[in-house]
Amino acid sequence: MADPMRIRAAVDAGGVTEVKVLMSHEMETGQRRDAAGALVPAWFIQNVTATHAGKTVLSAQWGPAIAKNPFLSFRFKGAQKGDKVQVTWVDNRGDKRTDEATIA
């Protein structure tokens, strides 16, 4: 079971919500070799989606070039203070994790 994400979200006076997400993931490229010389299998987050009030506000496809323990920051319009924003990632092993934050 993957560790929870750390999500912070805040809406500014102009109605733009900024969301910052830290994810705990190895993001193994599949290019590295272990001490014995064997390839370490690729293991990375493939899809990220963020939703607000049932609507997708961000959808992303990721690959192995993204760093370990990724940080994602994005902005969207239309949310109010106190609303929830959910973020979900799915990795290439089918592991997934969803967390949510309340917009400050």
Partner: peptide, 16 residues
């Protein structure tokens, strides 16, 4: 609705 998205990949690339 979505305005901009920055990816961690962009940061990793900048570091490189």
């Amino acid at each position: 609705m979505r305005i901009r998205a920055w990816y961690a990949g962009a940061i990793a690339l900048a570091a490189g």
